[in-house]
Amino acid sequence: MRLEKCYVCSSTIYPGHGSMFVRNDAKIFRFCRSKCRRNFNLKRNPRKLRWTKAFRKAAGKELAIDTSFAFERRRNRAVKYDRDLVAKTLQAIPVIQKVRSEREHDFYRTRMVEREKETRKDALRELATGLDVIKPLIVREKLREREEKESAMEVIEEGLVDKS
């Protein structure tokens, strides 16, 4: 049984599912569902569709380079049945899955920490530069008027002091 991957979203296609397109140059494209096929027909680049695995890996949103990705692969050679090999493989599967999920989680956590720093920096910058925007215009006008009045009073008072 061969499990294929969708050309667009990289999800696993089980036998009897999805659809296949063979282009006139004999290149094969497999799609997991009509959504993916339609997006292919619209000539969209899966690397630019935000919901695909290809986008997430290319944009650095998911762990992309790791040794735990070296196990699942298409093997184009027949392996002779070996009871020990099967047992070892079955033992290894959960271990590899655990390691991978832990590494993916770590990657996510570090990414979120970085993101938190960035958002904080952005917010502080906005606070420093854009405070005028949230202060209403009328309040600013009134404050200026008051300041002008006070300065005028000061001038008069100073004049009075000089005369006396």
Binding site: K5, C6, Y7, V8, S10, S11, T12, I28, F29, R30, N45, P46, R47, T52, K53, A54, R56, K57, A58, A64, F69, A70, F71, E72, R73, R74, R75, N76, R77, R100
Partner: peptide, 22 residues
């Protein structure tokens, strides 16, 4: 840009390049 291909889709799904034996 480099053209998108099935190999990239498979790499994104966490697969290694195919093992052709020889």
């Amino acid at each position: 840009d480099k053209p998108y291909c099935q190999a990239e889709a498979e790499a994104a799904a966490g697969m290694a390049p195919p093992d052709n034996g020889s």
